[in-house]
Simulated scan of single mutants.
Amino acid sequence: MKRSIAITLATLLACSAVPVNAGDKVTTTPVHFSRGSSSATLSGSFGGYDSVNYTLSARAGQTMRVSISGSSNANFNVFAPGGVPGSATALGSGTVGQDWNGPLPANGTYTVQVYQMRASARRGGKVPYHITFSIR
């Protein structure tokens, strides 16, 4: 009896030491435009609950356009400077075939989070994509 209680306690302790999203990977990639250019296209791939955060600097009053192509499971959110995915409200969002275009409210580093919805993330499939950023 004491042995089964000890095993149960050891199992519970081992499970509680693992964070809930221990397998989720967030990759952060800075976006740089070529000299004289106001846009850039990058490609990537992720799976499951992983996501990619692209960061790019812009000034208040400029207009940003974000478009994504590739897997129909690719989605994105745009966050203002200081906004953190998961705890801030996005300025805008989009998916394949639905670009986002909007004026920027502040100077600083914007974050564009690329992810897939929970239903498809559960299946764990790979999400290849191409994302284009434009600032004018």
Score class of each variant (00 low, 15 high):
32 H>M: 11
94 G>R: 04
17 A>I: 03
124 G>S: 02
41 T>E: 01
6 A>E: 09
27 T>W: 03
87 S>D: 13
107 N>D: 14
71 S>R: 04
73 N>I: 04
109 T>I: 11
18 V>M: 11
82 G>L: 04
15 C>F: 09
95 T>P: 06
15 C>Y: 04
41 T>D: 09
108 G>H: 03
132 T>V: 08
67 S>M: 09
49 Y>S: 10
55 T>I: 02
33 F>A: 03
59 R>K: 15
113 Q>H: 11
55 T>Y: 02
115 Y>M: 01
79 F>V: 07
28 T>G: 04
36 G>M: 14
60 A>K: 11
72 S>L: 15
53 N>W: 14
122 R>W: 01
96 V>D: 03
121 A>Y: 05
66 V>E: 02
69 S>T: 08
84 V>S: 14
58 A>E: 08
100 W>Q: 06
74 A>T: 13
47 G>R: 11
112 V>E: 04
15 C>W: 01
9 L>C: 09
33 F>Y: 09
131 I>T: 08
76 F>S: 06
132 T>Y: 07
38 S>Y: 15
72 S>H: 13
19 P>F: 05
102 G>P: 08
125 G>C: 06
136 R>W: 08
122 R>G: 02
64 M>W: 01
70 G>W: 09
87 S>L: 14
128 P>F: 07
75 N>A: 03
71 S>N: 12
78 V>C: 06
26 V>P: 08
78 V>A: 09
69 S>F: 02
131 I>V: 15
